[in-house]
Amino acid sequence: DNLVIALHSYEPSHDGDLGFEKGEQLRILEQSGEWWKAQSLTTGQEGFIPFNFVAKAN
């Protein structure tokens, strides 16, 4: 599964970004460059996240 966990909170700064809290679990939908499309397992919302704010969940 493409599950990751947030290492830091992220406040969206552009339309289409997905905000999240530290410790939140996300599902990665697309990996492309430094911005990945993800879905929050907490809110169900989708958007782009900075890849270096998350780590693979085990």
Rank of each mutant, 00 (worst) to 15 (best):
E21W: 05
Y10F: 08
P50H: 05
D15Q: 14
S32W: 06
G33T: 09
S13F: 06
E34V: 12
A6S: 07
E46I: 15
E30P: 02
A57R: 12
A38T: 00
G47D: 01
Y10P: 03
G44Q: 09
K56E: 14
F53N: 05
G23I: 02
G23C: 02
F48K: 15
L29M: 07
A38W: 04
T43R: 04
H8P: 02
L26T: 02
S40H: 11
L3R: 10
T42G: 08
V4P: 03
Q45K: 12
A6I: 02
P50N: 03
L18N: 03
H14L: 08
H8N: 14
E30A: 11
E46Y: 07
S32Q: 15
E24F: 00
A57E: 15
Q39D: 00
N2C: 07
D17P: 02
A55Y: 08
I49R: 02
K56C: 11
K22F: 04
G16F: 07
K56L: 09
G19M: 07
Q45R: 14
G47S: 00
E11Q: 09
I49Q: 02
H8G: 08
F48A: 09
R27M: 07
E46W: 05
F20I: 05
K22L: 04
I5R: 08
V54Q: 01
I28M: 03
G44S: 08
A6L: 01
L41S: 05
A57K: 10
G23W: 04
G44C: 06
A55T: 14
S13C: 13
V54H: 00
E11M: 06
P12N: 04
W35C: 10
G44K: 13
S13P: 07
P12G: 05
G47H: 02
Q25M: 14
L29H: 10
G44A: 08
W35K: 15
S13N: 13
R27W: 06
G47E: 01
G44N: 10
G44H: 07
I49A: 04
G33F: 01
L26S: 01
K37V: 09
N52T: 09
L3K: 06
S13V: 12
P50S: 02
P50E: 00
N2Q: 10
L26R: 03
E34P: 10
E46R: 09
S9I: 01
G44R: 09
L26V: 02
D15V: 08
I5T: 15
Y10N: 04
L41Y: 03
G44F: 06
H14C: 13
E34I: 11
R27Q: 15
Q45W: 04
Q45E: 14
L29G: 03
S40P: 02
L18T: 03
I28S: 04
Y10G: 03
E11F: 09
R27L: 13
F48E: 08
F53H: 10
T43D: 06
L7M: 12
E11T: 15
E46K: 13
K56I: 09
W35D: 06
Y10H: 12
E24P: 01
L26K: 01
Q45C: 11
E34M: 08
Y10A: 03
E11D: 11
D15K: 15
T43C: 00
G16W: 15
W36H: 04
W36K: 05
G19L: 04
D17T: 08
K22A: 10
F48P: 05
W35T: 15
K56V: 11
L3Q: 11
E30H: 08
L18K: 00
Q45N: 08
L3I: 15
F48V: 12
P12L: 01
G19Q: 08
G33K: 05
F51M: 15
Q25I: 10
D1F: 06
E30D: 12
D17E: 15
H14V: 12
L18M: 08
V4T: 07
I5H: 07
E46F: 08
E11A: 11
A57L: 14
L3T: 14
T42N: 15
G47K: 03
V54M: 03
I49Y: 00
A57G: 12
G23A: 03
D1L: 05
Q31M: 10
E30S: 11
A57W: 11
A38I: 02
D17Q: 15
L41I: 13
Q25H: 11
L41V: 15
G33V: 01
N2H: 15
R27F: 06
H14F: 10
L41G: 03
F48G: 04
Q39T: 08
Q31F: 05
G47F: 00
K56P: 15
K22V: 09
W36Y: 12
L18P: 02
Y10S: 03
H14N: 15
E34D: 15
P12Q: 00
Y10R: 08
G47W: 01
G16Q: 08
N2Y: 08
E21T: 11
F53C: 10
G16A: 07
A57P: 13
Q31L: 03
G44E: 09
Q39N: 01
V54F: 04
N2S: 11
N2M: 12
L18V: 06
G33C: 05
V4M: 10
R27E: 14
L29C: 06
Y10M: 06
Q25T: 15
V54R: 02
V54E: 03
Q45S: 08
N52Q: 14
S13L: 14
S9G: 11
H8A: 13
Q31A: 15
N52C: 07
G47N: 01
D17N: 10
A57C: 08
L41M: 09
H14E: 13
F51N: 15
L26N: 02
D1K: 04
E24W: 03
K37L: 11
L29Y: 09
E21R: 13
N52G: 13
S32M: 08
Q39Y: 05
H8I: 08
Q31T: 08
L29V: 14
D1A: 07
N52L: 04
E11W: 06
F20N: 03
L3G: 02
G44V: 02
W35N: 11
D17W: 12
K22P: 02
H14I: 11
A57T: 14
L18Q: 01
W36V: 12
L7I: 12
V54S: 02
A6K: 00
Q45L: 11
F48N: 11
L3V: 09
